[in-house]
Amino acid sequence: MSGGTHQGGMSLIVRTVTRWLKAFILLFGIYVVLYGHVSPGGGFAGGVVIACAYILLTLAEGRERTARLLSERLAAVLAVAGLLFFLGVGLAGMVGGRAFLDNFLVGDSGAEPALASGGIIELCEIAIGIIVSMSLFLAFAVLSRFRVSLGDGDETATGEGGAS
């Protein structure tokens, strides 16, 4: 499993750069998620950015080290939690005879747009950010894990990644 050079990640330079970069990418992703209601972006774009941060980490550092930060199990639990939360917000709207997915938290319409002015919009935005990022990370992780479990029998592997 931990075989050879190509599972340990990439070169030292790439790893160092990644270590610095990942925080910024994550921060940017979270920003895009949170400010989707006043500027372009939103849960989906931000979620993909966050997923990309973890994918970059996996590519640079290898699977084992990334798993310490975010295991596949945790990613699956978080994705499901996000979905259940979204669904729960929708069902909560039904309480008291209102409609499914009713925006029951919508704030004062005259106020200037703030972080929480959209009622359920902001909550759903965050939930979607979590769902998208975790699902996509999971998809990527399982794709790369599958490659490992093959043992690369019939392939003449020369090293990891197109970049090296």
């Binding site: 699956a76 639990v77 259940l84 669904l87 005879g97």
Partner: peptide, 22 residues
């Protein structure tokens, strides 16, 4: 009529819960 959205919500909730690693 207010039960109608549950035709989607209930199987979805079941699907999400069944997908939890356990």
């Amino acid at each position: 009529m207010h039960l109608v959205p549950l035709f989607m919500a209930v199987p979805l909730a079941g699907a999400f819960l069944a997908a939890l690693p356990n």
